[in-house]
Design a protein around this nucleic acid. Structure first.
Lengths: 208, 208, 208, 208
DNA sequence: ACTAACGGGACAGCCCGTTTAT
DNA sequence: ATAAACGGGCTGTCCCGTTAGT
């Protein structure tokens, strides 16, 4: 009851809820990418984002809620930017697809951290249904983008008919993720280079 | 006369360091497979193994040491049993290789837990160098076993010359692990079925 | 024309300081009766009242101030309505007194929550002098009302002379509160029934 | 993973689990008596008892478990020492009963803290079923001791036949607790004096 | 070799109060 | 007068490691 009324310094920064929220998500993503969800502590996110606990608690219900938002928004945006939109916009979807895979080792400059979606999916799928469904949804989006690219490739005569496009897309993702995992584990970008060669070559093998 | 009335507690009651150690490793492996290394708490391992903390401390230096031993011994043994020895013993190494891949979905009855080596590798590689080097070593052993099988296949005229066998082996592992990851995430064995088809077909494509 | 479509949110939408204040007090009373003062969190009161924190802060200085107001106003009003006014208005104060005690188990339909004044008094007396003095004041008012009823009973020859009326009133309150406590603790209205019998009988024993 | 192995000072005190446990219970009782269960924080208990968190966690499952043990053991012992045993041992149970009530204001030297059983019962009954049943059990023990004393009083001709002894005992407890509550709230021992007079007189009125 | 008692740091959630902005 | 954003301390729990004692 005798709780003293503590005085607060006026906090020079202006209010900006949108930025506060996005700073939190950014910091959370970085820490989760580095240490996994459970290895990330809230105080680190907070100090990295320059946000206090109270502010965070206003925007998110807790650590889990932040984690979910990181999947839905941050990793989701990355997936859309890197896969969905380029493939949807491209006039030549097959060329675009090959280009993305070709940039694998360049995009994974910090290959020792691995793929955020993969890390989170594997860490949390067995432990938290919310994480599992959210990451699974992103894998579906990813696969859908590739399927659509292959379908348009068929329409343009670049891809053979009669293929099971869903299966082809799943294969590309599986192999790609597998290589990323090996690179992370080996602390070596060589598997990424192999992924580029292999997967581009594979796409070419889909020609009629 | 000695083994009567030992029904309630099947644990190693009388001092038996060898069994104590193996019970600890078994319990640790199960918990780590279920919840990851950091999600596993020592007391759970201890109670599952029917061993107290002090006893454990005489066998291992701590949680980390148990984790390392699980990689080296439990997962290492699994790798040797499932890959190294069958491939080394087989008269027809290519047939053996295909057989192993064909049994993927059967072997992963609990596909929602994923591959222990993959889980541990991805969870810990960025956080603990000891885990990273140990899991990397097992990947090397695994790849070596496949390379050796392919090499013997070449000697028997079943595999084309001129292939980069290291790269082929790495591809098989990457794709396989990628599919396992997708199956775990989707809680669906379909990706494992796809892995069987795809990888067996791929091995056949290596023929001269 | 103004009051249409206001079905989803029955809260005081248009500015209405009087209603806002009373809604806050009502919600605070309910929560404090259920969970005690310290077990009640402000946000629950706020959401129950349909009022935001800023609005509350214009009416009350904080949680403590709300608590004080609940004692002074809500519980105070209840005390006045249930004891002071009926006893003051009654032509036959002794009959009125017996009637009130007789209604004990009916009035405490939710006997498992206990008497709000008792709960608050016991929870906070040792911790917060403001609560202690306010609840003590209500006990004095309560006792005063009974003393006055007994005094009028004496004037009408219904009560023996020579009694220490203050002590008699205190006894009635003490025993009554004691029974309420037992009922709450036992989740059983039996002690309230016993209180009715006992206390009515006791009042009758005060006759000349 | 890089958790440094922290060195601990050898802790001069010898090991004594029994004393450790009892020190914890004693400190917990004192704090709970002063501030209520929810107002008591673990660290205060710990520092008062000179015990660390780990030690406490070894003896009790958590704060709730300590609270339960305080009811069962500390308050239970007090009840037995103050009521059950004196009444059971006494050759003249009615005299013993009066003696106990006569010592009320002396026993409640710190009358502003109130009765521990009452405080806990009222604070927690509505919130935690475990507390409710445990305190209810002590009230039953208490009442049983008084009933037994009255019954022996009947056998010795000191108490009238035909009384509902359970109801008499309940009345004594209710009134006694009610007075204690008033004393605590008023910070005044006067209600305790009144309790002594009133209740001793009441017991005498039970004579044949 | 094994048991039980103990030491103690780290962390997420809870929740009250305060300030900016309408 | 009201709403939303923000500041920040407190506390119970979790859980790993260590030592006295057998």
């Amino acid at each position: 009851m005798e709780r003293a009324t503590r005085k607060t310094q006026p906090s020079a920064r202006r209010r900006n809820p949108v930025e506060t929220r996005s700073r939190l998500l950014g910091a959370a993503f970085r820490e989760m990418h580095r240490s996994g969800f459970r290895g990330t502590d809230l105080d680190t996110i907070l100090s990295q984002a320059g946000v206090t606990k109270g502010a965070m608690y206003h925007h998110f219900g807790g650590k889990q809620a932040i984690g979910y938002a990181v999947v839905d928004e941050v990793i989701g945006d990355m997936t859309r930017e890197r896969w969905v939109e380029p493939l949807a916009r491209a006039e030549d979807p097959i060329a675009a697809l090959k280009a993305i895979f070709s940039g694998a080792s360049a995009d994974f400059a910090d290959f020792d951290r691995g793929c955020p979606l993969q890390n989170l999916s594997l860490e949390m799928s067995a432990l938290d249904e919310g994480f599992r469904t959210r990451t699974a949804q992103l894998f579906r989006v990813w696969r859908g983008a590739i399927v659509e690219a292959l379908r348009r490739g068929q329409a343009q005569g670049q891809v053979a008919e009669g293929l099971d496009l869903e299966e082809e897309a799943e294969f590309l993702i599986a192999a790609y993720e597998g290589y990323i995992q090996l690179a992370k584990n080996a602390r070596d970008s060589a598997p990424l280079k192999a992924a580029e060669r292999r997967l581009v070559r594979h796409i070419e093998s889909l020609r009629p």
